[in-house]
């Protein structure tokens, strides 16, 4: 564990807490893409199957359980509890166009052909693009509430901090995983446009609004 990895994990944790609190406090999931949340639930489910095979640490187990449970809780809030507030007309991204290619790619480029390994690789590929339905929704409506922007900023920062963690691990431990690194870079690049708007608008107290 190094400082980049820890702050990355904490940013990820913060993002999820912000999202759950926003939905719970406002009793509304307006502006939140249910499609992205479905993808995150698939990502965590396929990646954390090792919960039943390998014990790393209490921290590791607790975080994995939290990410899994919170992703299902978020789906419950969006699709059941606050269904009436879900903005499905603007959440029209076809997730099969992300899930299918991620799976095919995981079958083609993976470290080993075992069930756990292929599913881990699939989850890494899928995570890198899982935010696209949410970004698509923001671009479609042309705006995002500030709280949604904070959520996106924390969620995007998490993988960017992981990249620093991977550089650190490569330098200090001569340890690296090319699949995670390339996917992590793709994931971070997808947020760049948003990061720019966040710094130039949201941090200056303005609402995130795209030019018409």
């Amino acid at each position: 564990m190094n400082i980049f990895r820890l702050t990355g994990d904490l940013a990820h944790l913060l993002a999820i807490i912000i999202l759950l609190l926003k939905i719970w406090k406002t009793r509304s999931c307006a502006g939140i893409s249910g499609k992205s949340q479905i993808l995150f639930a698939i990502v965590y489910t396929t990646r954390y199957l090792d919960l039943v095979t390998t014990f790393v640490s209490a921290y590791n187990t607790l975080m994995k359980i939290f990410f899994l449970a919170s992703s299902y809780a978020t789906m419950y809030l969006i699709y059941i509890k606050f269904k009436a507030t879900y903005d499905h007309n603007h959440d029209t991204f076809r997730i099969e166009f992300l899930v299918a290619p991620a799976f095919v790619l995981a079958m083609l480029i993976t470290h080993a052909y075992t069930l756990l390994e292929v599913l881990w690789t699939f989850s890494i590929y899928l995570e890198s693009v899982a935010i696209l339905p949410q970004l698509f929704m923001v671009s479609k409506t042309g705006e995002a509430e500030s709280i949604t922007s904070h959520y996106l900023f924390a969620l995007g920062s998490y993988r960017a901090l992981y990249i620093l963690n991977w550089i650190y691990r490569y330098v200090m431990e001569n340890n690296y995983d090319l699949i995670a690194i390339v996917a992590g870079i793709v994931q971070t690049v997808l947020y760049c446009d948003f990061f720019y708007l966040y710094v130039t608008k949201v941090l200056k107290g303005k609402k995130l609004q795209l030019p018409a």
């Binding site: 990895r5 090792d50 390998t54 975080m63 995670a180």
Partner: peptide, 10 residues
């Protein structure tokens, strides 16, 4: 194959 690394990171 470095499985430890894979299981450790989130």
């Amino acid at each position: 194959e470095d499985w430890g690394y894979k299981h450790d990171e989130l």
